[in-house]
Nucleic acid binder design. Sequence first.
DNA 1: GCCAACGTTGGC
DNA 2: GCCAACGTTGGC
Length: 134
Amino acid sequence: MNYWLIKSEPGTYSWDDFIKEKRTHWDGVRNYQARNNIKAMMPDDLALFYHSVKNPAVIGIAKVVSEFYPDPTIDDDRWVVVDVVPVRKLKIPVTLAQVKAEDSLSEMVLVKNSRLSVQPVLPEEFKAILALGD
DNA sequence: GCCAACGTTGGC
DNA sequence: GCCAACGTTGGC
C-alpha cells in the first residue's frame, strides 16, 4: 500500500469535476518521473488530490482502482494512466503554505520538487496532511 | 556527450 | 503577469 500526490489545475480539472465524473483516468502526464510513479501505483493505493496554481492546496483524497495502462488520449505508448475515484474531500484544504510551515512535512516532494505532477508521499506525511485537513 | 536555447510548470 | 526552476530538444 503506497501513498501519492496527484496535481491538477482546478481550471483544467478540479475536485468538483472529479466528484461529478465519479471515476477518471489520470491522463496528460508527459514527464518521465511522473510516468514512472504512475507505473508504480497499485489498486487501493491512496492519493492526495492537489490543486495547483490557484489557491494551491491539498483538497481531497483519491483512490487508485486500476493498474497502469496506455494513455487513451494520445497515440504514443510511452505514456500511461491509472483509474482513480474520489474517496472524500478534506474538511478544510491544506494549503501549500501550511505544508511549508510544518516541520514534519519539510521533506515532502511537494516542497522539494514542486514541479513534479505525480509524487510519492510517505505514510507519515499522508497522516500529517489528514491531521491538518480534518 | 555537452550545453545553449527554448518551452512549461507553478508559486507568488 | 512575472520569473525561477526544471525538462527537453537539437546543434555541434
